[in-house]
């Protein structure tokens, strides 16, 4: 297992795997997002309490999930980098940060657009919203920290430590709706015994969530490949690929 992991960590092997999986994930993501938007807007029934406004769920919840998922990927990769000095892990964390920030921004913005008609306010300093805003600051801080240190190794280490310290915010976001009284409604999906959402509404939501995940992975893999190409432009395997015109 570890050997396999080690071989994958070699940028040449990762590059070969990513150039197959990347486009595959891209196609799967595009199909799921198209189906999810179609079913979410046209097929799913109207909610008896929230009317049509609930359809914001199909972009809000996947964004919010991704904001946390991408952070977990970043934190996990940061740990790999700090413990085993895996450069590839650092690259994945680096290219993930702007996308994580974008998903967090979307979660906050679409949440705001949902909160106005349902709660009567764009923003409330409650636990769920505040901890999600802190997540956005963590992403921004991570990118700013990386950008502010010239030495690549030091920048990577400092950023990795920040990412690991910030991971404490993730359970706070997740449990905030249980620990504190909040405007935000509790999770409707993750209690698997009795999901409080009807199946015809749930299916498009899961399609969107999976579509967002594939979308993140296809972009992450492509960006990681770009970073590898730049860093290893002088390595033989890159030169060979360049000559054979299959970068």
């Amino acid at each position: 297992m570890f050997q396999w992991f080690h071989r994958l960590a070699a940028s040449k092997n990762f590059y070969r795997l990513a150039e197959i999986l990347g486009p595959l994930f891209g196609v799967l993501g595009a199909i799921l997002l198209t189906l999810g938007v179609y079913r979410g807007l046209f097929v799913a029934p109207t909610d008896y309490e929230q009317g049509e406004s609930y359809r914001i769920i199909y972009v809000h919840v996947p964004s919010a999930w991704m904001s946390m998922f991408v952070y977990m990927v970043m934190a996990f990769c940061s740990a790999l980098f700090l413990i085993w000095k895996m450069k590839l892990a650092d690259i994945i964390a680096e290219v993930s940060a702007p996308m994580g920030a974008a998903f967090t921004f979307l979660a906050l913005a679409t949440g705001s657009l949902w909160g106005k008609p349902m709660w009567g306010t764009w923003w409330e300093w409650d636990a769920r919203l505040t901890s999600e805003l802190i997540l956005l600051f963590l992403y921004i801080g991570y990118m700013a920290l990386r950008a502010s240190i010239d030495n690549r190794g030091s920048a990577a280490r400092a950023a990795a430590i920040l990412a690991l310290v910030g991971v404490v915010n993730i359970p706070i976001i997740h449990y905030s709706v249980e620990w504190w009284n909040t405007l935000h409604q509790p999770a409707s999906i993750t209690k698997f015994d009795t999901p409080s959402i009807h199946i015809s509404m749930l299916v498009p939501l899961l399609m969107m969530a999976l579509g967002f995940t594939f979308f993140y992975f296809t972009n992450m893999l492509s960006r990681a490949r770009s970073v590898i190409l730049e860093r290893e432009a002088n390595n033989n395997w890159v030169k060979d690929r360049f000559r054979e015109n299959r970068l």
Binding site: V37, L41, T46, G51, E52, S53, R55, I56, Y58, V59, H60, S63, A102, F105, L106, A109, T110, L113, W114, K116, P117, F215
Partner: peptide, 19 residues
């Protein structure tokens, strides 16, 4: 959108633009 057009469409539009 049952009177919620001003909230639903910007949500989808913004998500589309960001992606």
């Amino acid at each position: 959108m049952g009177g919620y057009a001003a909230y639903v469409w910007p949500s989808f539009g913004l998500t589309f633009i960001v992606m």
